[in-house]
Amino acid sequence: MSAPVERKRPDMVTISDVARHAGVAVSTVSYVLSGKRAISATTRQRVLASIGQLGYHPHAGARALASRRSNVIAMVLPLRSGMHLPVVMELVTAVVTAARQFGHDVLLMTADEGPAGLRRIAASAMADGVLIMDVEMSDARVPTLRELERPSVLIGFPADPSGLTCVDLDFHLAGARCVDHLAGLGHRRVALLGAPPVVYQRDTGFAHRTRAGFLDAARRHRIAATARPCGESPAEARAAVEQLFRDDPAVTGLVVHNEAAIGHVLAALSSRVPDEIAVVAICPDHVAEAAAPPLTSVQIPAAEVGRQAVSLLMRKLDGGGVPESTLLSPVLTVRRSSTSP
């Protein structure tokens, strides 16, 4: 029979109060909370019932000291120019939702502190593991990640991913799939309007790989191809389109890999899509479906990437083995924007 306990506000209830109420040792309550030792089902249920009745919430700092686990993961998200926030927030939402399913909270770090920020996380008890976004081909954080004791997962791929755990859409194959589709329709001159110039200047991995996949596929099909960056504003997108067709008026197939510029590119092309210019986009499905005309597209599965990243990190935290590279296969959906030339 559980012992009576003086009624307290939930934020004042201690683990000792729970133990007294359940009629067990403090260590037993701790084992029920941490799962580090097997407890009989009857005792476990009695402890959980006391926790529920008293409204006990384990103090995060005390739990971290006791178990060396904070049940928090850090997500490093430098908010820099050229990052399309709707896609970023879809990914962040998926990470937070998936982390809660594993009983973890997410500490969002928006300051671009580079390697120093990673060392600061590792030296403290604020997070059990780290997710890294906006990965560059020669990312300055990679050597530090290889040295840290804290488990980490990169959402994106550097040039050399050895010794790391990385997950992302296979952007190289995504760029190739777009060209395969256009070539299959009979287009012989294609172009890529990609990310803003600053993204290429940083040598960001997803932009680099999309362009490489696009050009590799064009060579494989023996068709003419050109690739150039595209700014996000209406004026920048229009200028990119106009310059493209001044340089090569014979282009009939266009791939757009810049979610923020898609509407502006279509506006610059006016009524030429799809009768004169076939357009394929690499973007979220809802963006492609809302365009006029609806765009043939390769989906960016931001939510699935976020879920996979959290799952990989949790497996590493539990000491399980994980693959170094997890590449999600691109899916191309045909809509009204692409026809034969």
Rank of each mutant, 00 (worst) to 15 (best):
A183H: 05
E113R: 14
S70D: 03
M109V: 14
L118V: 01
D134E: 13
G55R: 12
D180T: 09
L317P: 00
D168T: 07
M314C: 01
D203H: 11
I277E: 07
V255C: 05
P284Y: 03
A237N: 05
H187L: 07
M137D: 09
R9V: 03
T43C: 01
A41T: 13
V280R: 12
A66P: 00
A98G: 02
R189V: 13
F206G: 02
A309Y: 04
L108N: 02
T42Y: 04
R222L: 02
R63T: 13
L145P: 03
D180M: 01
M83I: 15
S162H: 11
R335M: 12
I155E: 04
A66G: 13
S40W: 02
L215N: 05
M137I: 03
A309N: 06
P78C: 09
L215R: 07
G263W: 02
L312G: 04
G194L: 07
G175L: 08
C166F: 12
V106R: 03
K36S: 07
R7G: 09
V279M: 06
A224P: 00
G103M: 09
E136C: 08
F171S: 15
V47K: 11
R46E: 12
A99I: 11
R202N: 09
L254C: 03
A159C: 05
V251H: 01
S81C: 04
T28S: 12
Y56M: 10
P274A: 05
I155S: 08
E232D: 14
T210E: 05
P151K: 11
T252F: 00
L131T: 11
A191R: 06
D247F: 00
D160C: 02
A278D: 03
G61V: 10
A281T: 15
A98Q: 15
P330M: 07
S138W: 01
A237V: 08
Y56S: 11
L148E: 08
V241I: 08
V13Y: 04
S27A: 15
A159W: 05
Q201S: 11
H104N: 14
L85G: 01
M75F: 03
G52T: 10
T97P: 00
M137H: 08
L185T: 07
A291Y: 00
A292N: 08
A218V: 03
L131M: 09
P293K: 13
V24S: 05
S297N: 14
P293L: 11
A127E: 06
E149H: 12
V18I: 14
L77Q: 02
A140Q: 10
L131W: 01
H181K: 12
H104G: 06
L148S: 09
A217I: 01
V310H: 01
Q201D: 14
M133D: 04
V130L: 10
G319A: 07
L173T: 15
P10H: 07
I39F: 07
A74C: 05
P229Y: 03
T110V: 13
M137S: 14
A240N: 04
Q299H: 06
L185E: 06
A225E: 02
D318G: 12
M314G: 00
Q299A: 13
N71G: 02
A290R: 11
T339A: 06
G231L: 05
A62V: 01
D112N: 15
D17K: 09
S40K: 07
R220S: 06
H208N: 10
R272E: 13
P323S: 02
V331A: 12
S50H: 01
R246E: 15
T93V: 05
G320R: 14
S2W: 00
G129P: 07
